[in-house]
Design a protein around this nucleic acid. Sequence first.
DNA 1: ACATGTTTAAAACAACTGTTTGAAATTAAC
DNA 2: GTTAATTTCAAACAGTTGTTTTAAACATGT
Lengths: 215, 215
Amino acid sequence: MSDSPCNDPSRDRLLLAAVEIFAERGFRDATVREICAKAEVNAASVNYYFGGKEKLYAEALAFALCQANQRYPLGDALNLGLPAEQRLIAFIQVFLHKLMDNTALGHHGKLIAREIADPTSALDGIINTAIAPQFAMLKEVIPSLVGPGWSESDIYRCILSIVGQCLMYKHSRSVVDRICPNVIASPDEINSTADHIAKFSLAALNHLRIERTQT
Amino acid sequence: MSDSPCNDPSRDRLLLAAVEIFAERGFRDATVREICAKAEVNAASVNYYFGGKEKLYAEALAFALCQANQRYPLGDALNLGLPAEQRLIAFIQVFLHKLMDNTALGHHGKLIAREIADPTSALDGIINTAIAPQFAMLKEVIPSLVGPGWSESDIYRCILSIVGQCLMYKHSRSVVDRICPNVIASPDEINSTADHIAKFSLAALNHLRIERTQT
DNA sequence: ACATGTTTAAAACAACTGTTTGAAATTAAC
DNA sequence: GTTAATTTCAAACAGTTGTTTTAAACATGT
């Protein structure tokens, strides 16, 4: 249902407006009146179509997530036939570009960032659907790059080091925009940033492998 | 004024309660009534002592920041007499431990994370006071590690890669707690995480230097 | 055309929220 | 002890908010 708009123009407009306003303002600050004004429907529509503000939020979140994953599929990162290094590079490219998407779709990232920062009951679903698969993929890939003999916690630390670099540009966007906006100022710069993260990460992982081999 | 409590018990209790409730709930969701209940003062006190909710927020933020920096001074990271590598390690240690502080002081990090995610007029002040000095310090240190010839943007990307790794454990704490809580489950694990981030980052920077030297 | 179901709308409702008000209580100064 | 200043309080205020209510308007089916 929430993965594609049904033939219901009012409901659709409401859902799209909700994604945007919830992303901008968060759940609490977003008002039903503002969302309805943006969607050009009456305030009663929220209860009519979604049963209330909370359910609207849950559906907006699920919808945004689904749209984002369709536009930015993991693709090569999931291809077992490719070397681990290429899979990691592919992941970083997709992930960062998804985070940096500033079209209407970009609201999804803000919505998820808010959910992560202030979890509602929806977070567990998001983790299962969107985040755990990424971690699982990275958990396949990282041992191939860093070599055997690392604890599970160390593998996770490597994963978090990579993911954390990408999320920096989304979660702390306000800081990046004030201190060094050039690093993500254009598509070329975003590509350079993705390249940098890939290089930085591969270098680190490679070094950890060598270091472990020598001990 | 806001860097140390004045001799005014009601005002102090109010400020401390505000730090906590604003950290937990954010500005909008935190109510004056809840803060005053926690502080055991009357709701009119907010206007009496601080002139209103917004000013209370601004002072709570400034106070929390000041307290955090006093407890976690940059110390060795600022010591020009130490090698760059050691300075970077010191920075990562201090920064991560500050972020992972789960005493009452830990509210500061949540407050700042919220401000970064949803900037108010206070953000610029915070950047000047707390974030820009860190970036300036790292901007001194990184070129010594990565070698000459890198663009300013590349230096910033390195800085963001390091800071982003640390912030992962704070900004995405809800995810870490659900997927791999062990990595920061105890003081020892936090130390291991700080060591990991330092190793990961130094390895990457070292590799970038070698790579640039060979081209 | 009529009956039924769905959608839309405006108004009302009940609760919440930061702020103000006026006065009592407390403290400080002489 | 008296006066003045400060602090605290409960109630009121004005605005906001999600939800409900009721009925009109619209769409569908026969």
